[in-house]
Design a binder for these strands. Structure first.
Lengths: 339, 339
DNA sequence: TTGTATGCGTTATCAG
DNA sequence: CTGATAACGCATACAA
């Protein structure tokens, strides 16, 4: 357990004061080049490692950023987190992750923890934030947290200091639907998703809007959850009818798996008999047979925006809400014209 | 930005000293019940929140635990992390996650960071740790880190203070293979996995061992990576022969997806014509058609062991290496007798 | 440009 | 059982 090297040691060694050493280490301009070099040299010679705890205690802002998402095991959140983590580490920040499992208690608990650590900031994507009305308990927690440390959310939080990096669900739906309509589909089902989830509601609304714009009367919606079985049972139900849909929009790639399975069981082939598209555009889409046409926000740009905004907030630069992350629309071979 | 409530405030409010307040808050025995109650009461009345930074600076041990894994997006690591995170949060610890992507630089970088934060500890599973010979750069980093904060690894690290929570790959392979042999299979292929990865080598060795025990001469191994395409191409190659295997062991669930796809394309049906099993037993196994027989370490017990051991180390209790985590062997419907 | 002194919130070591 | 006070490592306002 060798004693830790501190700036005091460096100060002693160089004959300078801790203040000067500190200035050098933080790239504070006003310091002579010679002393600067001397400090750098002895720092690395002694094997100095900065102590973030002390730094944090002094500045009241750690270099750990908390990320709160519903479930890292889903390909969607897994992808977002991984991109964010990669960028953050490059910039000298560490990401702490919490699966909320949409559990309000876990969410507020996590905020409390991060606050207690004076974390650099918190990022929340989805979860209870994605309810039609944000639960007051969470709302208050976010609001009071945002007064002390930077907070970024995937949804605007009114009357708070949060920044919002918005995922445009409506635009995603529009892209998918217009693509199918252009192929000639008129009977298009939208499968999966709960109606108390904001992102889903936004997708539904866009679904109705676009149908209307194209004067398509028939909306076919099957509510459910976001899993494979939801796609499966929806298809089983929907395709029992006389004039079944010719195309299906699945709420997630995972949901699409179920759609395709059910289709197969009914002797229908995805990509020829029925067109299938999905949200999220994760590796699952490329894994299926046939490969799925899918849409999502551009993960890299989204993640970069989130992290950069967060760091700007931490380092007290100007920031703005972001509503215009580009989409990633990948046309593969799960669709054809219905004729 | 309301000023933070500290123990000093509580001390003032109660007329006690900070020392006493601190003692109460840390359940240090010797303190009168009455003063104890008074402290607790005013603490909650004032809305006191402990400051982990200050605490950490004082004790030189934070409540953040770092977890270093190859890639959270894989179902295997996603599952392990999620279980660990759930348990850790319950016990008051936060998990910071780093995807190493098997990149040595990222790995050592992460250790450096955690050290600088005086993290509670570090857990590394797989990655460069899983090479036949641990790269010296990483070895040194682990060794020196372990001298300062608790470190747990999935593989024993010789001559260091790490604790090891071992995942018994050989036993997993044995379980799978003996199951297939009992069903009557004699031509069993083992598909996927690189030969510079320790866990894979252990599986291979067990594969040879068990075959030998059952006097099966023919070992059929197809090296590759751990993805879907590796399973796919392996089958395409292996099943071109006159007497193809009657069973396939895939190195991961994901790899098995490719196996099944290739089989389908060749007009062979998994579960009737060919038996398929895999490692990892993730949700993917239940998602496939037919559902896959699969084996892994029991995730819950593994994760609980890891976190409990870590916390014991942090709180300086006795610990021991763990080599006997039970397995989770799920027999589903991807296998039959070959006759 | 550099140094001095103080604070950040806790824990821990001594005394009482 | 309780209280003063010195660390812990760093940043920074104020002086020089």
């Amino acid at each position: 357990m060798g004693k830790n090297i501190t700036i005091v040691d460096i100060a002693k060694e160089t004959g300078l004061s801790v203040a000067t050493v500190s200035r050098v280490l933080n790239r504070h301009s006003s310091v002579r080049e010679e002393t600067r070099r001397k400090v750098i040299e002895t720092a690395s010679r002694l094997g100095y490692q900065e102590n973030y705890l002390a730094k944090g205690l002094s500045t009241m802002a750690g270099n750990m950023i908390g990320m709160l998402i519903p479930d890292i095991r889903t390909p969607f959140y897994g992808r977002i987190f991984s991109e964010c983590e990669r960028i953050a580490l490059e910039k000298g920040y560490v990401l702490a992750l919490c699966n909320s499992f949409n559990n309000l208690k876990r969410e507020t608990h996590f905020y409390t923890h991060l606050l207690a650590q004076h974390a650099g900031g918190v990022i929340q994507i989805g979860g209870s934030l994605d309810r039609q009305i944000i639960p007051p308990q969470l709302y208050n927690q976010i609001k009071s947290t945002a007064e002390k440390i930077p907070v970024i959310t995937s949804v605007p939080v009114e009357d708070s200091e949060c920044r919002c990096v918005y995922v445009d669900n409506a635009r995603c739906m529009r892209t998918l639907l217009e693509y199918l309509i252009k192929l000639g589909h008129r009977k298009i089902a939208f499968v999966g998703g709960r109606s108390n989830v904001k992102s889903t509601v936004e997708k539904r609304q866009a679904y109705y809007d676009v149908l209307k714009e194209h004067e398509i009367r028939e909306a076919i919606i099957s509510e459910g959850n976001y899993g494979q079985e939801d796609g499966y049972f929806a298809v089983k139900k929907l395709f029992r009818q006389k004039f079944p849909p010719t195309a299906v929009i699945a709420i997630t790639d995972i949901c699409a798996i179920g759609v395709i399975q059910a289709l197969n069981e009914m002797g229908l082939r995805c990509g020829t008999d029925v067109s299938v598209v999905s949200f999220d555009n994760t590796y699952i889409a490329e894994m299926l047979e046939p490969e799925l046409t899918s849409v999502s926000t551009d993960y890299e740009i989204l993640s970069e925006t989130i992290i950069n905004t967060m760091i700007d907030m931490i380092e007290k630069r100007e920031t703005r809400d972001v509503y215009d992350i580009p989409l990633m629309f990948s046309i593969r071979n799960s669709c054809t014209s219905p004729f």
